[in-house]
């Protein structure tokens, strides 16, 4: 219930006015990602146990897991979209053709695959917010500064997911959700690689925070 209360909800896209066509789509998406990152960092601080981590571990988790956490939101919003579109924001639905034109073919394929998986299990909001926190907590940090605090953070979230599924007598869904984490990581990696490639190829101007977070992945 704490995660539900602190869930920021989705931002609206600011359609870039400096250009048009596929570059406009890309710039709009990157602006949205940058603002989502700002919200994500504020949100992370409210997850129970996150503030007990050392600053070094907080940074490592965010640098490693930010895209996974953001993509849970995209997959969640895209579950009920018409025409197999990806819903990056309420006012930014992208079809396969639009993604392809913007150089995001790989992002489309990967995120669509992830969306289908969650569609298949009819992901619920409670599960989506917990999964988002779990993805962040589970991201790989090496070396870990304070292993005990990190373990407590992970255990707390795992327990919350188990308690939720137990309360609905659907314990089997805990395993199903955890088993989706490898696909989530793979999807995030492909998305990051696609963006890094685009940044090099098209030399798109990126906002500082997004650039910093992509650099941590490069």
């Amino acid at each position: 219930s704490h995660l539900l209360q602190t869930e920021p909800g989705s931002l609206a896209a600011n359609h870039d006015a400096s250009t048009d066509g596929s570059l406009r789509t890309l710039l709009t998406l990157c602006d949205l990602l940058n603002r989502e990152l700002l919200v994500l960092i504020g949100w992370a601080k409210q997850i129970p146990g996150f503030s007990d981590l050392s600053l070094v571990d907080q940074m490592s988790l965010l640098q490693s897991g930010w895209m996974e956490a953001l993509l849970v939101g995209v997959a969640w919003r895209s579950q009920s979209a018409a025409g197999e579109e990806l819903v990056f924001a309420g006012n930014l639905h992208l079809s396969e053709a639009q993604c392809r034109a913007a150089g995001l073919a790989d992002v489309y394929e990967a995120v669509r695959h992830l969306t289908v998986r969650y569609q298949g299990m009819k992901l619920r909001l409670e599960e989506a917010v917990t999964l988002k926190a779990l993805a962040l907590a589970n991201s790989d940090t090496d070396p870990v500064d304070c292993p005990d605090a990190l373990q407590r953070f992970r255990d707390g979230l795992h327990e919350a997911l188990q308690d939720y599924e137990l309360s609905r007598r659907e314990q089997h869904r805990t395993g199903r959700l955890l088993m989706s984490l490898p696909l989530l990581r793979q999807t995030a990696d492909r998305t990051v690689q696609n963006l890094l490639w685009l940044q090099r190829q098209r030399r798109i101007p990126l906002h500082k925070l997004l650039l910093e977070m992509l650099d941590a992945k490069a």
Binding site: G42, K45, L55
Partner: peptide, 15 residues
């Protein structure tokens, strides 16, 4: 930390 200045600053802000 120098390289990841913005993230560092955002995490240190209390709000």
């Amino acid at each position: 930390k120098e390289k990841h200045k913005i993230l560092h600053q955002l995490l240190q802000n209390s709000t």
